[in-house]
Amino acid sequence: MPLITPLLILVGVVGLLLAHAFVPSVRRWSWKAFLGIAVVMFLVQPYLALSWAPPEREMGEVQRIMYMHVPQVWMALLALTLNFCCSVAFLLKKSWVTDALAEASAEVGVYFGAVGVTLGAIWAKPTWGVYWDWDPRLTTAAIMIVIYMGYLTLRRFVEDPEKRATWSSVMGIISYVDLPVLWFSVKWWNSLHQVQSSPKTVDPDMTMVLRWSATMFLCLLSVFIIHRFRVAYAARQAEVAPPEALAPGAA
């Protein structure tokens, strides 16, 4: 398989995402397309990651966890970036679409982050001998999940939809801005503790498989966010729907 394949698929997926964002008629079927691409890529991915890609020099076969672990952490970051954008957008212009999208992206981001951190811990066991070694990446990701679990809790604790949307937007911005500071603080704190670094690889085959997995998880992320958005948006519509008290002529 040509090494460029995953990049080409990625371009297609991004194009479809843009179409989904800007062309309303696409929205009815786009999730099925994402799901279809994801399923096909998921079927091929084990072959690529477990057999086709070479084992890494130092870590051997265990390094193959990377193809699952790294893309999912990326997806978490991507989802939380979307959450930040929606939070800013909501404060600039009130809209239930951005509010529901913020809710959806935060939850899906927490989901991918949690799976990513779990896989990181599984990877840590054979390479470092323990499940948790205060690796800055892993620690930052874990705190990040806790922060956004707080965000989701706040959403659940405020009944008024307007207040919930505004406050959670404020919290979304504050949380996202915290992430780089968190990263540096944990890294410096850790650098005094011990030097730990995950091996990087420049092997083109590995890069290809990593890109393949990333594109595959991007499709999955899109499917999850689209559906979580529908759940959130329907809930919002039910909350803010004018009741019969507001029916025309009632006044």
């Binding site: 008024d160 004018p242 008290a245 507001l246």
Partner: peptide, 12 residues
């Protein structure tokens, strides 16, 4: 109109 939670305290 003003809504508090699910209740409309003022309507049109």
């Amino acid at each position: 109109s003003k809504r508090f939670g699910a209740r409309w305290a003022l309507a049109r």
